[in-house]
Structures are given as C-alpha cells and as structure tokens.
Design a protein around this nucleic acid. Structure first.
Length: 708
DNA sequence: AATAAGCACT
C-alpha cells in the first residue's frame, strides 16, 4: 500500500477522533486541531491564516505552516495533573488506521561469519594510513586488495575508512570494478562517513545515483540524508528528502521520524513538532530518549518551560528514565527557559538517581547559577566538584570564570585562572582571558587589567572585541586615556573589528572626558571605529544645526546600530550635549529617543500616582527627563488640569556593580531646580512630592527658571 | 548501515 504524502497529511486534518484525546493534553492544541480539521471543508484555519484549498499539491511545509505560525501559549499551572494521565480512549479497533510512521524499526541484516575478516581489516588499515591528499597513492594501495572481495568484506572496509574522501573513492572503485552488485548498504555506510565530514553535496549525489541505478533507498538512507542536511543547516533539503520518502510510499521508522522531528525542532517549528509527535503517539508510537532529548532542547530554545515539563511528563507516562544526555539537555533547556530553580532540582534529581554529572552537566548548571546570580549555589557546586572529583575540562573552566564575573568572585576567579595556567590540558585561551578582563574591568582594577593584556600579547593569545571592550571600559572609567588609546590601537592593528558595543563604550568615554584634551584622543579612536557617529556628534554640538537635520541623521545612526546599543548611544549623546551646556539639544535627543521607543518605561501613571522612572538612563539623560517632566507638570498645574495626589521619581539604589551614582546626581539636580521632591526615607533612590508641594512650587516659580 | 548534550560583555 503506497501512502502518498498528501494522503498522510489529509488524514491528519480530518481524522480528529484519533488525535483529539491526546491533544487534550495541551488544551490550546486541541483547540487548534478542532479548528484546523475544518480546513478540509474550506473553513479558514484561523483569522490570520488563509484557507488552504490546495492541500493535494502543496508541499509538506506549506500544509503544516498553519501549525508553525502559532506559538506555544502559556499554559495553566495545573497542567502537570492533566499531563500525568493520558487516557488512551481514542482507540477504535474496528477501523483500520493509517499510520504516520512505521512501528517497526528497520532491521539490521545479521553479520555473517567471515574467515577473511582479519586480512581485510589490515587492508583497510593500510588504506587509512596512506596520504589523505593523494588519490593516486590511494589507488595504488587498492591494487594490493586481498583477492575475492565479498559484500561482507566490502562493507567492512567501507566502515573502517576515514576520512570521507577514502570511503567515497572506495565506493566508486567497487562500482567501477563491477565485481559486486551495488547494494543499499554500501551507500548507507558511505553516507555515514560523508555525514561525519559534513559532505551533504556528495551524499545527495550518491542518493541520485541510487535512484538512477535502481538501488533502493531505505530508512537508513533517508535518516542519514536527513540528519546530514540537519547538521549542515540545509533544512529545505532535509524536508525535500523527507517528502520524497513519503511520495515513494516508504513509511519512516522511528529513527527517521525522530530525525525529521529534529529538523523541525532546529527550525523552531514548535507546533509542527508537537503535531507530528502527538499524531505519532496517537497511533501507538513510543518515543525514545533521543526524541525526548530533541523535544526538550527545542522547548529550551523557545524559552518554553511548560513544554519542558510536558516532555518530562511524557517520559514519566512512558516509563522512560532520563539518562545523562537527556538530563544534560533538559537542565540546559530549563536554564534557557529562565527557570534556574527547576534546573537545580533536575540536577539534584539526576545525582540522587545515581547518575554522575559530566563536564557538560556541570557547565550547564554553573552557567545557570551564574546568570541567576546565585553565588551560594554556584560555589556549593564548585565545592562538590572538588570533593567528588567530578570531571573538569576546558569549557567548564571558562564557564566557571564567567560565573565568577557574573557574581563578582574575584579571588575565586584568580585561583581558577592560576589552576588553568598550571594545568597541562586546560591552558587559558582567549575566552579565559576575556573573562578575567571582564572581572578586573568590572571592579575597575586598571593595573591588573593592563597586566593581563600585556600577558595576552606576550603569550600570543588571540585578541577579541569583547576583551577590548572590557579594557576600554576599565581604562575609560579611570581616565587612563593614553593607555586606552594604546590598547585600542593594538587591537585594531591585530585585526579586531570594533562592533557597536565597543563604539558605545568609546562614546561613553567621550562623554566622560568632556573638557579635557583627552576627549580629542578618544574621538580619534571612535573615528576609526565609526566615523559616522563622530560626524553626528559634530553635527549635534553645532548650535546652528536644525532639529530637522538632527532628526534625519539620528534615524540613520540608530538604524545602523544593533538594537541593544541604541538606548546607550542615545544616553551618551545626551550626556555629551549636557556637558557642553547644550540643554536644548539634549532635550531634542531625549524627545527623539522617546519617539523611537528607546525609553519605553520612562513614565507611568495611575489615578493616584505619576511616576518618572529614570533607572535605565544615564545621568545626563535622567536630568533631561526630569527637566522635561517638571516643565510638563508646570504646564498642567497652570492649566489647572487634574493631578494625582502623589508624584514619584525613581533612580534606583545604585547598588549594582556598574551603577554610576545616579541617585546622587539626581538629588543634587533636584536641589538646583529647587524642585519639591524629597528623598524617600524608606526607599533609597525614590523621590516623592505631593500634589500640594508641586502646586505651591509652580506658583512660587517664574516660568523662565525651568528649562524646556 | 541510521537518531540526542556544553563557552561571552550591566
């Protein structure tokens, strides 16, 4: 019975009886499925998706697109209770069901006893030892092949050859010699070697050769092709061969099916994966650990914690106990989904179940604790690593260093760094040095930063833009401008290309070095990194420049910069203008920044309280925002419009390691404006005024005293 | 003869 692709998909859309019950596991998907089942009667799939009237001729991805376009919604907290009891009430034994995948795994043919095995093993060894780059030498070696090549021995040799070029050449040789009929297995073994070498082009060539010569493509062939395409990020190719398999009437077995799920998972098509997974489950398929791992990773990438819990529940109901790899994947995924507490309990559960963590487990856990700023937990794991002799490797060392940077453990980082230098296997590399530069930069330790940099140059450690940014930040804050320029020059000479973050860092040093000769030196560095930005600075500090021009150029500068630096850029530019007493320009820039949405949470209002939140602003931008606010409030008071009882300005506590004393500058500016705000007694970094305070302040002030 | 896991700059 040949099952065409379209009929498979058609079943998926109409045969809701088989799928509905399992879909009730995920409420939203049941809802989706009920709706999409109507698509066969030309009812739109959803408001946003046009009806697909052409199911027969569209590609698989087109047909599944409506699934892919919906993101997995947040699910209710009580979900696990529902998940833990999937009652299989869908079964309808009277009706033959068409399947999405074959329940039987492709069978391996048995290995025959082979008296010449040893001889051919030696031969393969000889072929492996000959020069990789010389085809002629390889062909010469082939002359010495022991006589009477059997299919078993051909497979043995194909299986042992590496790199892929040799496997490929040997396959071609067998074909050209015409000694043996070409079998599917010869191609499959060769493809495995080619996949290791990421040679998708050659694999595809062989697949076409098989088709042309009438050699059957089986599940092993397809799964190898698909996983290779996946590895090479050729997702359309993976889909193409998957579709071809269905079209030729071959059902994927569980390995191929798993490989297909892996492709959609890597594409982030969560809905497609869930749909295929559920449909497979509904027809009796039992997913294995590998499939669970694929799903877990996908949900992690999607930041979907409920999805991860869903995978865990599925495993539980299938009686699958996670192994080391699955635990590692799920721990990492949980971290990515922003649930460090859950990651920690998975980690402990894993150890309690008797599985010892490896380097990858510990890397994931340490990274999660560092990002969560859980220094206590991170240090505890580190302690256990030492006590239990848990494995350490190079990546784990660097992850530990990054964790130290995240939670501010300077001495511990120094100890680790020394350990690395003394070790044989894990000598510090550019990542390790960058982590240390980050640590010293954060605490403003100029001497140690410079010493580290000199060491990097001496040992020939690769310089990267992140290390440069850390150094520039550190030296800029300390106003060591000559050293800053020297460091910048060396990085540029060594071919490091400044990125937007480095430019932002230089820009902030420009604003800090206002009024000194040093500013020119920093501007010269910035000129090399981003000449347009320097031109823009010159434009805005010229009072003659019109607002229209500033507006136009501002747009250009900001759209060329990556999203993360746009707000800091705008902050620095405002600072530069304020430092030059160009208050009008500072207000224009703040206005433009607000217009482009760089300051989304600056104002919030309730019936009782209006709040100005300047916590993400630089000092200059915060003061500009304060002036703007006072001017607006003044207008409102004068017009006698409705006002709330309380006004609140928030600067934050300045407790963060990169805090710039915003609350202090803000308080002093309030005094300068003689504004009616008082520092809150129970909340540091909050400034409060009542409606009465404000009204009397406006009445006692002349309009001219407020900058607009 | 085929399927799953780790390194970065508030």
């Amino acid at each position: 019975m040949a099952t065409s692709l379209s009929s498979v998909i058609h079943i998926s859309f109409v045969d809701t009886k088989t799928t509905r019950t399992r879909f009730s596991i995920l409420k939203s998907h049941r809802k989706f499925f009920t709706i999409s089942s109507k698509s066969t009667s030309n009812v739109p799939i959803s408001e946003t998706t046009p009806p697909n009237n052409n199911i027969k001729n569209s590609s698989l991805s087109d047909q599944l697109a409506p699934l892919a376009n919906t993101t997995l919604p947040t699910l209710p907290e009580n979900l696990p209770k529902v998940l833990s009891k999937p009652k299989p009430t869908w079964a309808n034994p009277t009706k033959a069901k068409r399947h999405l995948l074959s329940q039987q795994r492709h069978k391996r043919s048995s290995v025959l006893y082979n008296p010449q095995m040893k001889e051919f093993q030696r031969f393969a060894q000889k072929l492996n030892n000959c020069d990789d780059s010389s085809e002629a030498e390889f062909m010469a070696c082939l002359e010495e092949i022991p006589s009477s090549l059997t299919r078993e021995n051909a497979l043995l040799v194909l299986n042992s050859l590496k790199p892929w070029q040799k496997t490929h050449m040997f396959l071609n040789w067998i074909k050209n010699q015409d000694l043996l009929p070409m079998e599917t297995m010869f191609y499959n073994v060769t493809m495995k070697s080619l996949r290791f070498g990421r040679q998708f082009g050659v694999i595809e060539e062989l697949a076409h050769q098989m088709i042309d010569n009438g050699v059957e493509l089986d599940n092993v062939t397809y799964s190898t092709i698909i996983t290779c395409a996946n590895k090479c990020n050729l997702f359309d190719k993976a889909e193409h061969w998957f579709e071809r398999m269905y079209k030729t009437g071959l059902m994927p077995d569980e390995v191929t099916f798993s490989a297909i799920l892996g492709v959609y998972a890597r594409l982030g098509k969560v809905e497609v994966v869930i749909s295929l997974f559920e449909r497979g489950r509904a027809t009796g398929w039992k997913p294995d650990l590998i499939t669970c791992s694929v799903l877990g990773k996908m949900f992690g990438e999607a930041g979907d914690f409920y999805g991860i819990r869903y995978v865990l529940q599925e495993m539980k109901s299938l009686g699958l106990q996670p192994n080391l790899v699955v635990y590692n994947t799920l721990i990492e995924a949980t971290g990515k989904a922003g649930k460090p507490g859950f990651a920690r309990s998975l980690f402990e559960e894993m150890i309690d179940s008797g599985i010892a963590p490896n380097e990858k487990t510990l890397t994931a856990v340490i990274k999660i604790y560092g990002k969560a700023r859980w220094s206590k937990d991170a240090l505890e794991v580190w302690q256990r690593m030492k006590e239990n002799g848990w494995p350490m490797d190079f990546i784990l060392y660097n992850t530990l260093l990054n964790m130290c940077a995240d939670v501010g453990l300077v001495e511990e980082a120094e100890t680790l760094f020394r350990d690395m230098k003394q070790s044989e296997q894990c000598k510090p590399d550019s990542w390790s040095y960058t982590a240390m530069l980050n640590i010293y930069g954060s605490e403003g330790n100029v001497d140690k930063s410079i010493k580290l940099f000199e060491e990097m140059c001496k040992f020939g450690i690769e310089l990267n833009v992140m290390g440069c940014t850390c150094l520039i930040q550190c030296l800029g804050k300390a106003m060591e401008i000559d050293a800053l320029v020297r460091v910048f020059d060396i990085y540029v000479e060594r071919g490091v290309k400044p990125d937007d973050k480095l430019c932002g860092c230089l820009l902030s040093v420009v604003s800090l070095s206002q009024g000194s000769k040093d500013q020119e030196k920093v501007l010269a560095c910035l000129q090399r990194a981003n000449p347009k930005l320097v031109a823009f600075i010159q434009l805005i500090v010229d009072e003659q420049t019109s607002f229209e021009t500033v507006k136009e150029e501002f747009r250009g500068i900001m759209s060329n910069a990556v999203v993360e630096v746009r707000t800091p850029f705008c902050n620095c530019l405002i600072d530069i203008c304020r430092n030059k007493d160009l208050l009008g320009r500072a207000h224009e820039l703040l206005y433009l920044g607000s217009l482009y949405g760089f300051y989304p949470s600056l104002h919030h209002k309730s019936q009782y309280e209006w709040c100005l939140d300047v916590r993400r602003l630089s000092v200059g931008a915060a003061l500009t925002a304060l002036e703007e606010w006072m001017a607006t409030l003044t207008k409102i008071v004068r017009r006698e419009e409705a006002l709330p009882d309380l006004f609140l300005a928030q600067t934050g506590t300045g407790a963060h390691k990169f805090a710039h004393g915003l609350n202090i500058s803000f308080a002093s500016h309030l005094r300068k404006l003689d504004a009616p705000f008082r520092q809150s007694e129970d909340k540091v970094g909050s400034f409060i005024a009542t409606k009465d305070d404000l009204v009397s302040w406006v009445q006692s002030n002349s309009p001219a005293s407020i900058a607009t």
